[in-house]
Design a binder for these strands. Structure first.
Length: 756
DNA sequence: TTTTACTTCGTTTTT
DNA sequence: CGAAGTAAAA
C-alpha cells in the first residue's frame, strides 16, 4: 500500500515530483488541498525530509490547522515540528524573535484597521491635512498599496517629485510609520514588509531561515502580493524547493495587492519548474462545471484549462429574477425549506453566498422568520467589536503600556472624568520627556497644571497596577474577569445603550471563555501570545461549518469551501459585478469580479441556484439593476429559468437616467400586473421555475468499510484496532489504537486505512 | 466634560 | 437607511 493510492495520475505526479520548483495549477474542486497534504507527507515519509525543514503557507489559520492535522494523521506526530501557517502568522513568528534588529521592541503589538484609522486621523491633524480633501481611508489604502509593493518612504520619495498629491501621501506615510514605531506597533502590511526588510538587511538572519526552510509549499498562490512573493522568493532561492499551488481563475484579492502575475509568471521566475495541471473535478456536476467554464472563458490572459468530471450531469443551474430583494430572500428561504422538508438535504448542506456583507441582513430576517437555524460568517469581526476592543485595550495596557492608542481608548472608559484637556497636558509632558503616555500618567502628581485631574489619573494607573498583579498571579480568563469586574464594565454597557447591551455583555462573556480556553490549551502562553493570536485570527477561522445550519457568507469567504446546495444571491449588474468595477472602465476590474463569480459557482456540488432582484434598496435609495452579465454568459442549455436578454452593446449607458427610468417603468408595470406575489406559499411556482424534485441521495460522507473493533492497516503505522468512529458532516474522525504507535485520531478521508 | 441634536457620508471584498 | 462624526448646549 502506498501513499499515492486513490490519487489520479496527475495528482500522484504532483505528489511525487522531484525536488526543485513545482507549479501545480489546480482547478476548482480538483483535490488541491489533498494533493498538497500528500505532497508534504510524501516528502517526510518517502524522501526523509525532516519536518523541521518544512514551511507550508496557507490562506487561513483554519486551513493551516487542518492541513497539519491531516499530515500528522498520515505520517505521525513528528510532523508537529513543521511550520504550517498563514503568511501573517509565519512572519509574526519570525518578527517576534528578530524585530529588535529593526528598532522595535519585541513586545510590539498589531494595529487593526480601526487603529490605523485613529492613527491616521492624528497624523492628519498634526500635519494640518484637510481630511475633506484627503480621506484617511484613501491615504491608508495608498500606503497599503505601497507596502504591498515593498516601497518604503525613502523609495517613494523618488517617484513623488512633481506630484502634489503624492507629496501629501508621502508626508503622511512618514509620519504614520513614525507614530507606529513610537507606539511599538505594526499594521498588517508591516508584518510582511518588515519581514522582507529583515531578510534583506540581515543576510545572516535570512541564511538561518533558508537553512531551516529547505522545503517551502504555498497554497492559494494566485492570491499572494508582491511582498509575500518576495518573502518566499528570498527564502526559497537557495534550495529552490518551492512548491506552489493555485488557480489563476480564482485570484480574487487584487484589491488587496494580490498580483496575479506571481502565478502566471512562475515559470519565468523558475525556468526549471515542473508544471502540473489538475483538471479533473471531484466536486460538482457537469452542468455546474459547464456553466462556470463558460463564464470564466470570457476572461483574457488566463492559463487555459478545462475542468471535467466523471460525475453524472445532475441538475442544471437555475436562475430566477424577482421584483424586490425581499422576494428574493423569501424565495431562497422557502427553497431551503423545501429541500429540507423533502429530505433531500439538511440545512447544513445549504449555503447562501453574496457579494457584499450588507446583503445578509434581509436574508437573515427571512430565515429567523421561518425559524431556520443559520450562521453568518464574516461581517464585523468578533475582535473588532467596540466592547471587545475595549477589553483588549485594557489587556494591551496591562501587557506593556507602550501603546498610547490603547491607553487613550480606555482611559475614560468607563467614564472617569478624564477629558481631552487633561490628556493633552499629560501628552505634552510625555513628549517633552520622551516617555509614553502611560509612563507620564504614572507621574501625574509631578505634572504641572493638572490640579484635581491628577488624582483622577492615579485612580486609573492604580487600577492598571492592581490588574497587573492579577496577570502575574492568575490565569488569563481570571484576568479578563477581573477587568470587567473592577471597571464595572457591564454596568457601563447597560447605562450606555439599552438596546444592544445584552448582545454586548454576551460578547464579553464569549471573550472570557475564549481567554480561558486559550490559556487552557497553551498553559505556558503569555498575555502577549494571546493578544497576538487575537490580532491574526479571522472570523472565518472560527466559523463552524459542521453544525446543521444554513451558512451565509460573502463570495470571498467562500473560497476553498464547498456545499451541496449553493445560492448565489444578488446576481445583478451594479451589485455583482459591483458598480465600482463597471464604471472604472478597467476591464481588469470586471475580470476580477468574473473570477469571483467563477469561485462562487464552483462551490456547488449538486445544485446551484442564482437569484436577482429588479429593485433593491441600497444605501437609502432604491436601485434598479439589470441581471448580471455573468448570468447571461451561461449558455442557455446549461441553465433553467428565464434569463432576460441583455442588450448587445454591453458598455451601453449603464446607470444613465434614461435607462434607469425605463427599468423603473417596467418594474412598476410588472408589480401592478401581479399585486399579490404571495411569496411564502411559493411552492406552486417552483416547477415553472425549472426546479424539479431531486432524486439525489443526501451527501453523507462515504461509508467506511471498517467499523469499531475492526483491525485496520495504515500505510505508515501498520496494524491497529479501531476504537471509535465519530461521524462529522464533512468526514469521519477515526480513532485507532496502533500496535506499534499507540492511539491516533485521524480523518478517514486522509488516513489511508484498509480493513485487514 | 458630557450630552444632545444635527449633519454628513458612504459600501465591495479581508489577512 | 444607518452609522459615525461634529457642533452646540447644559
Amino acid at each position: 500500500m502506498s501513499l499515492t493510492d486513490g490519487l489520479n495520475i496527475k495528482q500522484s505526479e504532483a505528489v511525487t515530483a522531484p525536488d526543485g520548483p513545482l507549479l501545480i495549477l489546480a482547478g476548482a474542486g480538483s483535490g488541491k488541498t489533498r494533493t498538497l497534504t500528500y505532497r508534504i507527507a510524501y516528502l517526510i515519509s518517502e524522501r526523509y525530509v525532516n519536518p523541521y525543514n518544512i514551511l507550508a503557507v496557507t490562506f487561513t489559520n483554519k486551513a493551516a490547522g487542518e492541513m497539519k492535522e491531516r499530515v500528522m494523521s498520515l505520517v505521525g506526530d513528528d510532523a508537529d515540528r513543521m511550520w504550517v501557517s498563514t503568511f501573517h502568522s509565519a512572519c509574526m513568528r519570525i518578527l517576534r524573535s528578530n524585530i529588535s534588529l529593526l528598532g522595535y521592541d519585541d513586545r510590539f503589538t498589531v494595529y487593526d484597521t480601526d487603529d490605523q484609522k485613529t492613527v491616521m486621523k492624528n497624523v492628519c491633524k498634526r500635519l494640518n491635512i484637510d481630511t475633506k480633501r484627503y480621506k484617511e481611508r484613501s491615504i491608508l489604502s495608498e500606503i497599503s498599496t505601497l507596502k504591498n509593493e515593498l516601497i518604503d518612504p525613502a523609495e517613494y520619495e523618488k517617484e513623488v517629485i512633481g506630484d502634489f498629491n503624492k507629496t501629501v501621501y508621502l508626508r503622511c506615510y512618514r509620519e504614520y510609520q513614525e507614530t507606529l514605531l513610537k507606539n511599538n506597533a505594526v499594521d498588517f502590511d508591516d508584518i510582511i514588509m518588515l519581514t522582507v526588510k529583515l531578510f534583506r538587511e540581515y543576510p545572516d538572519v535570512l541564511e538561518r531561515y533558508r537553512e531551516r526552510f529547505r522545503y517551502i509549499l504555498v497554497d492559494e498562490y494566485q492570491d499572494t502580493n508582491t511582498a509575500q512573493f518576495e518573502m518566499i522568493r528570498l527564502l526559497a532561492d537557495k534550495y529552490r524547493n518551492l512548491c506552489v499551488v493555485g488557480d489563476d481563475d480564482q485570484s480574487i484579492y487584487r484589491f488587496r495587492g494580490a498580483n496575479i502575475r506571481n502565478i502566471l509568471d512562475f515559470e519565468e521566475h523558475y525556468p526549471e519548474a515542473t508544471v502540473i495541471k489538475l483538471e479533473q473535478n471531484y466536486r460538482s456536476t457537469q452542468y455546474i462545471l459547464d456553466a462556470a467554464n463558460a463564464v470564466i472563458a470570457n476572461n483574457y490572459g488566463r492559463k487555459e484549462k478545462r475542468l471535467w468530471t466523471e460525475n453524472k450531469s445532475g441538475k442544471k443551474p437555475v436562475f430566477n429574477q424577482f421584483d424586490t430583494a425581499y422576494e428574493e430572500a423569501e424565495f431562497i428561504v422557502s427553497d431551503i425549506k423545501r429541500h429540507s422538508r423533502s429530505g433531500e438535504c439538511g440545512y447544513g448542506s445549504c449555503a447562501v453566498l453574496y457579494r457584499t456583507n450588507a446583503q445578509s441582513r434581509i436574508i437573515e430576517e427571512r430565515l429567523i422568520n421561518a425559524g431556520i437555524p443559520y450562521n453568518v460568517v464574516g461581517g464585523v469581526n468578533f475582535y473588532s467589536r467596540a466592547e471587545i476592543k475595549d477589553i483588549l485595550a485594557y489587556l494591551k495596557v496591562i501587557d506593556s503600556g507602550i501603546d498610547d492608542l490603547s491607553v487613550r481608548r480606555i482611559v475614560n472608559v468607563p467614564k472617569r472624568s478624564i477629558g481631552n484637556a487633561t490628556l493633552e497636558k499629560v501628552q505634552d509632558y510625555a513628549e517633552s520627556r520622551d516617555k509614553s503616555l502611560f509612563a507620564a500618567m504614572c507621574e501625574a502628581s509631578d505634572i504641572p497644571g493638572l490640579g484635581k485631574a491628577a488624582s483622577k489619573i492615579s485612580v486609573f494607573t492604580d487600577l492598571i497596577a492592581v490588574l497587573r498583579a492579577y496577570r502575574d498571579n492568575g490565569t488569563l480568563g481570571e484576568l479578563v474577569e477581573r477587568i470587567i469586574e473592577l471597571t464595572d464594565y457591564e454596568e457601563y454597557l447597560k447605562d450606555m445603550d439599552d438596546e444592544k447591551a445584552d448582545d454586548r455583555i454576551e460578547n464579553i462573556n464569549e471573550l472570557v471563555s475564549k481567554a480561558a480556553s486559550f490559556s487552557e490549551s497553551r498553559p505556558d502562553a503569555t498575555l502577549s501570545d494571546f493578544l497576538e493570536e487575537v490580532a491574526l485570527v479571522s472570523d472565518l477561522d472560527n466559523a463552524d461549518m459542521e453544525s446543521e445550519r444554513v451558512v451565509l457568507m460573502t463570495l470571498h469567504s467562500a473560497k476553498g469551501l464547498e456545499f451541496p446546495v449553493v445560492y448565489l444571491a444578488g446576481m445583478e449588474d451594479g451589485l455583482f459585478p459591483g458598480y465600482m468595477s463597471i464604471s472604472s472602465g478597467d476591464e481588469e476590474d470586471i475580470e476580477e469580479e468574473r473570477r469571483l463569480a467563477y469561485v462562487g459557482m464552483t462551490r456547488a456540488e449538486r445544485e446551484l441556484i442564482m437569484t436577482a432582484a429588479k429593485a433593491r434598496m441600497l444605501r437609502g435609495e432604491t436601485q434598479f439593476n439589470p441581471v448580471s452579465r455573468f448570468v447571461s454568459e451561461i449558455p442557455s442549455e446549461c441553465i433553467d429559468g428565464y434569463v432576460p436578454r441583455r442588450r448587445n452593446d454591453p458598455g451601453d449607458g449603464y446607470g444613465t437616467r434614461r435607462r434607469v427610468d425605463e427599468m423603473a417603468r417596467s418594474f412598476t408595470r410588472s408589480v401592478e400586473k401581479k399585486p399579490a406575489p404571495k411569496p411564502s406559499s411559493g411552492m406552486g411556482s417552483f416547477a415553472a421555475m425549472g426546479i424539479r424534485k431531486g432524486s439525489d441521495k443526501v451527501s453523507a460522507p462515504a461509508e467506511l468499510d471498517y467499523s469499531v473493533g475492526d483491525r485496520v492497516r495504515h500505510f505508515k503505522f501498520g496494524a491497529g484496532t479501531v476504537t471509535s468512529i465519530v461521524k462529522e458532516p464533512r468526514d469521519h474522525k477515526v480513532t485507532v489504537d496502533f500496535d506499534a504507535h499507540g492511539v491516533k485520531v485521524m480523518y478517514a478521508s486522509f488516513a489511508k486505512l484498509k480493513k485487514e
